[in-house]
Computed example of a mutant assay.
Amino acid sequence: MTSFLDPFISFVSAHAWLAYLTLFLAALLEAVPVVGSVIPGSTIILALSALIPGGELKLPWVLLAAALGAVLGDGSAYWIGHRQQRDILNTWPLTNYPRVVEQSENFFHRFGTWAVFLARFVPPIRAFVPVTAGALGMAPAKFYAVNIPAILVWAPAHVLPGVLAVSALHEYAGLPHHGHVGKHLWILAVVAVAIVAGVAVWTIRRRHGGGITEAKPRA
């Protein structure tokens, strides 16, 4: 995979429009059932985000391309499931992945609406939960009310690590970089991680009736 990505990243770094298109397609295809389980979307997004400190790409456009691709990918999968209902889960090519489909259903039943948020950060079921949500009858308004905030957290969570790592490397090696890019990145990264961790902890505690605080002492 590295042997393919290295020359590809070098090529798109010289063609910004192609890099943004690649980011969009990587995020979109990563959300497509089955396809998303084999497309290294997260790896591509992380690799291209490393071009931001050097000025080849712009942070706002990278975030926008990734977010739009994810919204379109998740939304398309959801509407396919919504229109075909449970029949889609028993249709090729999903029938070739019965274990992942079952995991997605169990994940959805366990976490309910929040499964749409949490699945954004849990490959490979990330590519199966949107279509499962539609197939199981989740209302469109409820889906988008959770999916869009999840993507707004997911995009920075995937882009910022590469930016921070390369910015730190430039700083350490004394290489030129765009200082204004990294000025507030640590704050954004901490906020993104805090949101993900907070939602995860709240969901787990909610599903387990408040966690250890309700555990009964042994006699």
Results as ranks from 00 to 15, higher is better:
15 H>D: 12
151 I>C: 06
7 P>M: 10
115 A>C: 04
70 A>N: 15
129 V>Y: 00
62 V>L: 02
13 S>E: 13
60 P>E: 09
207 R>P: 06
107 F>Q: 02
93 P>C: 10
99 R>Y: 01
173 A>N: 10
76 S>P: 04
123 P>Y: 12
27 A>Q: 13
117 F>L: 14
151 I>D: 05
8 F>P: 10
150 A>V: 02
218 R>L: 14
60 P>C: 04
148 I>R: 12
56 E>V: 08
200 A>R: 13
63 L>Y: 06
203 T>E: 15
100 V>C: 00
161 P>F: 01
115 A>W: 01
6 D>G: 03
140 P>Q: 04
76 S>M: 15
178 H>Q: 14
210 G>T: 11
69 G>D: 05
62 V>H: 02
73 G>S: 08
51 L>G: 09
162 G>C: 04
40 P>K: 05
163 V>T: 05
189 A>P: 10
147 N>T: 03
172 Y>P: 04
69 G>F: 02
28 L>I: 04
80 I>T: 11
123 P>V: 11
92 W>A: 11
83 R>F: 12
119 A>M: 04
148 I>V: 15
111 F>T: 03
206 R>N: 14
97 Y>W: 10
137 G>R: 00
176 P>I: 09
89 L>P: 02
188 L>W: 15
201 V>L: 14
120 R>I: 06
58 K>Y: 05
16 A>L: 09
105 E>W: 00
144 Y>S: 05
144 Y>K: 07
160 L>N: 09
131 V>P: 00
138 M>W: 00
117 F>S: 05
87 D>F: 04
36 G>N: 03
1 M>E: 08
78 Y>C: 06
2 T>Q: 13
194 A>H: 10
16 A>M: 10
135 A>F: 00
58 K>N: 10
80 I>S: 09
21 L>Q: 12
4 F>T: 08
213 T>S: 13
80 I>N: 08
98 P>C: 00
175 L>D: 13
142 K>R: 15
100 V>F: 01
25 L>F: 12
29 L>Q: 05
64 L>Y: 03
179 G>H: 11
151 I>N: 07
22 T>W: 02
93 P>Q: 09
28 L>T: 07
122 V>N: 06
81 G>T: 00
52 I>C: 06
17 W>A: 13
1 M>S: 09
55 G>V: 10
193 V>T: 10
128 F>C: 04
131 V>G: 00
117 F>H: 08
203 T>N: 10
185 L>P: 05
45 I>D: 01
171 E>W: 11
167 S>F: 12
133 A>L: 03
154 W>H: 13
200 A>L: 15
131 V>S: 00
168 A>Q: 08
162 G>N: 07
90 N>L: 08
152 L>A: 15
128 F>I: 14
32 V>K: 04
41 G>F: 03
193 V>F: 13
